[in-house]
């Protein structure tokens, strides 16, 4: 009985000796493998963010602030407001990610965020953005935005003019058509 137990006890070191087991990880050089679901530092897709500030509203610690950032999408985000996160207070709960209506905010596998001063760990959209436009693209998009706005304004003007004309016609023709149809130009 005792011999069996002794053999059993020796089987463990023998088993371990044949395997290659990682005992100590050389940490800064070699990170541990993180799963796909890891909730690390946020990743912002500035090209799709609409600046709705849902993330700022849902944050339990008020660590998300909406700040101005110039390399976003001016077509979708009129005020150019993007989230800036204070990682000194962030507890990585992920509520902001769940709340995002366009799924532009995600949490990545980056986890190192140490800084020398407290203001170093307040990360602006420039740091968070994984996708952003260049200055030229932004300028192009702004021109595009102006064009669309001008088109819309023209369309509205035309619609208004048509409506006015319709109303004029309607009043001329008497009360034949009591409810004139509204703007078909849009």
């Amino acid at each position: 009985m005792l011999k069996i137990k002794l053999l059993k006890n020796f089987s463990w070191p023998l088993k371990i000796a044949t395997q290659e087991i990682e005992i100590t990880r050389l940490y800064p050089e070699k990170m541990m493998e993180l799963p796909a679901a890891e909730r690390g530092i946020h990743e912002l897709d500035a090209t799709t963010c609409i600046g709705c500030s849902s993330c700022a509203r849902v944050c339990p610690n008020n660590c998300v602030e909406m700040v101005h950032y110039k390399f976003g999408n001016p077509l979708k985000n009129k005020k150019m407001q993007f989230p800036q996160i204070d990682f000194g207070r962030c507890m990585f709960c992920g509520l902001c990610v769940d709340e995002c209506p366009v799924e532009c905010l995600k949490m990545g596998k980056k986890v190192i965020m140490a800084g020398w001063e407290r203001k170093d760990i307040i990360k602006d959209p420039e740091f968070l953005a994984t996708k952003k436009f260049s200055a030229k693209e932004v300028a192009d998009l702004e021109v595009e935005g102006k064009r669309i706005a001008a088109e819309k304004a023209a369309a509205k003007k035309a619609a208004d003019a048509k409506k006015a004309a319709d109303a004029k016609n309607a009043s001329k023709e008497g009360a034949a058509d009591a409810n004139p149809k509204e703007g078909g130009a849009s």
Partner: peptide, 27 residues
């Protein structure tokens, strides 16, 4: 802990359960 982390994305403070469901599906 690694098993739990692979689902919830956090090691200790999970914030995983939601009203009427859970946050993530099993990987």
């Amino acid at each position: 802990i690694s098993l739990i982390e692979s689902v919830t994305g956090a090691r200790l403070t999970h914030t995983f359960v939601r009203f009427g469901g859970v946050r993530n599906d099993l990987p």
